[in-house]
Simulated scan of single mutants.
Amino acid sequence: MIPRKQVEDERSNGMIGKILGGLNSTLRKLLFHVISSRPIPEHIAFILDGNRRFAKKWKLTEGAGHKAGFFALMSVLKYCYEIGVKYVTIYAFSLDNFNRRPDEVQYVMDLMQEKIEGFMNELSLINKYGIRVLFIGDLDRLYEPVRIAAEKAMEATAKNSTTYLLVCVAYTSSHEIPRSIHESCQEKSGATAIRVINGNGHTNENHGGHAMIKVVDLEKHMYMGVAPDPDILVRSSGETRLSNFLLWQTTNCLLYAPKALWPEMGFWQVVWGILEFQNNYKYLEKKKKQA
């Protein structure tokens, strides 16, 4: 039989936890209300860097670092959607990572399948924020169980349109851009020659053909053509490399590199990133208009 005092202590601790949780939620909403009086980014992209270093730092298994990173992702998504961000993009797996040892690739594929299925079990989060999940990249390169899990996630959330989670897998910009050029050329292949028009409207090459490929044509065929360009690109762990991620789309966005490893990312990192965006908003908008 459980002692009465132990039961009372557990009830008391539970009540305190609920009160503190409710207080945190109220303060968070109040702060978000104040922040939202200024421009809120429509799209934030994240490079999830530091899961392995987090595990090493705390002497955990590598899998424990990725598990902690998954919980961090759930929190970051919640904060982004609560404050009004509509699109969140994460860099989950680079196309270049397929060059790793087969056992490493298999480990990551297994982990990815587990995390996709784990995310789809977070129905309260998905339904509350109306999240539509889109997987971006050369999905044919994914191992079959991962591809099937990704397809199921996209199908299950296809009717949602309040917010979006874009997961870049088997993706690099150096693959996305040439692919877009190739598909644009195929689309215009009925003409005798092709002229490529840059963003300023200048012709890079002209052999007298009738077909013109413009920036808008290229962007239509980009994997990331389903979303507006990011307003903020965040790379955790203090690293400032883009690692072949969204090179085309981040020309005029804010780059933000908090020192926190990805599993350490949370409320304050999201808040400071948005405040930095707001402080630079006029400059960023000016650069976009000049592009």
Rank of each mutant, 00 (worst) to 15 (best):
P3A: 08
R4L: 12
Q6A: 11
G21L: 01
S25D: 10
S25T: 14
H33G: 14
I35W: 06
N51C: 14
F54Y: 06
K56F: 08
L60V: 00
A64D: 13
H66M: 01
K67M: 12
G69I: 14
M74S: 03
V76R: 01
C80Y: 00
E82R: 05
G84V: 04
K86A: 12
Y87W: 04
F98C: 13
P102V: 07
D103I: 06
E104I: 05
Q106Y: 14
Q106H: 01
V108D: 10
L111E: 03
I116W: 05
E117K: 09
F119T: 09
N121T: 14
N127R: 13
N127K: 14
Y129Q: 08
G130I: 10
D140I: 06
L142A: 07
E144Q: 13
I148H: 13
A156W: 07
S161N: 12
Y164T: 00
Y164Q: 00
T172D: 05
P178V: 10
S184G: 12
E187F: 13
E205L: 10
G208L: 09
K214L: 08
D217F: 14
Y223R: 13
A227Y: 07
P228Q: 11
P230F: 12
L233V: 07
K259R: 14
K259I: 07
A260R: 00
G266A: 09
G266E: 03
G266D: 02
V270H: 03
I274Y: 02
L275G: 11
L275H: 06
Q278D: 03
L284I: 04
K288P: 03
A291D: 13
